[in-house]
């Protein structure tokens, strides 16, 4: 059974239609990359799955159940969220931030229990930042901050994590670090990830690492194609989505075997 399913999804802000006829189904243990130009509605679709917005038509099933029937607290036990741009306002300690992942398990008028605090510490250890637990998180670098957001999502202990451009603003190394973390989570902890990204090569990278990967190409209010990266990320589709000329490259890395990347050549 699909963990997250969108059936004939339609959404509009007032009369401004964002997407229509969106069909999507994500299975356990797979990673789905949402790919599309700026403003194509990726974030809005994510907001709908998270229950921030209601679809105008169609429906969303979470674990086979209508998402409308979920309270925010229940939904947060199935789907966690890693934001694109987390605005850091108050300098909370890193561990305080991760503990917020336990909100769905904590009563309105109480604070996280010892058990919840342990789960949060464990999640922080999972992303390798436990040594920073007492640091103000406003002092972290962009990459560390993103890992803390990931740890907070892990503390929610959900089967599904949704990420909105998790590597935006990260340097080369931290981008890889976050991707490797996602790879580990999907491969070894059987998590399911839905991820909006601007980089087609992220999808290739997951596929190259033998992860069950699918890509949904979003363009002009609907999905152009959904399928494995090798099938859908092609020069023709890149031209359609971004209006750029690209080349698909193949090369061998000894321990990984055949790898693929798509590189831009010029705008058209």
């Amino acid at each position: 059974m699909a963990l997250v399913e969108v059936i004939d999804g339609v959404f509009a802000y007032n009369k401004n239609r964002i997407f229509t006829n969106i069909n999507l189904s994500v299975e356990k243990g797979e990673i789905l990359c949402l790919l599309g130009p700026n403003g194509c509605g990726k974030t809005t679709l994510i907001d709908c799955i998270l229950g921030m917005h209601m679809l105008n038509d169609g429906k969303i099933l979470i674990n086979g159940l209508d998402a409308k029937k979920f309270h925010p607290g229940e939904l947060a036990k199935y789907v966690a969220y890693v934001p694109q741009n987390h605005e850091r306002t108050f300098p909370y300690k890193v561990l305080d931030i991760v503990q917020m992942g336990r909100a769905a398990y904590t009563g309105r008028f109480s604070s996280p229990s010892q058990q919840d605090q342990d789960i949060a510490a464990e999640a922080l250890a999972m992303v390798g930042l436990i040594k920073l637990k007492d640091r103000p998180y406003t002092q972290l670098s962009g990459g560390e901050g993103q890992l803390v957001m990931l740890a907070r999502a892990l503390a929610q202990q959900t089967p599904v994590i949704i990420m909105d451009e998790p590597t935006a603003h990260l340097d080369f190394k931290h981008e890889m670090l976050v991707l490797e973390m996602i790879l580990d989570l999907v491969r070894n902890r059987e998590l399911t990830v839905i991820m909006a990204t601007h980089f087609p090569n992220h999808a290739f990278w997951f596929e190259n690492n033998a992860l069950k990967t699918r890509v949904a190409l979003m363009h002009e209010e609907h999905f152009v194609e959904v399928g494995p990266p090798m099938d859908v990320i092609c020069e023709k589709n890149m031209r359609l989505l971004y209006n750029i000329d690209t080349r698909l490259l193949s090369f061998r890395v000894n321990e990984l075997g055949e790898m693929h990347q798509i590189v831009p050549v010029k705008t058209l």
Binding site: D47, M52, P72, G73, K77, Y81, P83, A103
Partner: peptide, 10 residues
């Protein structure tokens, strides 16, 4: 709002 909602807050 968005994050608080996703963390399970009404």
């Amino acid at each position: 709002d968005r994050e608080a909602h996703a963390l399970g807050i009404n």
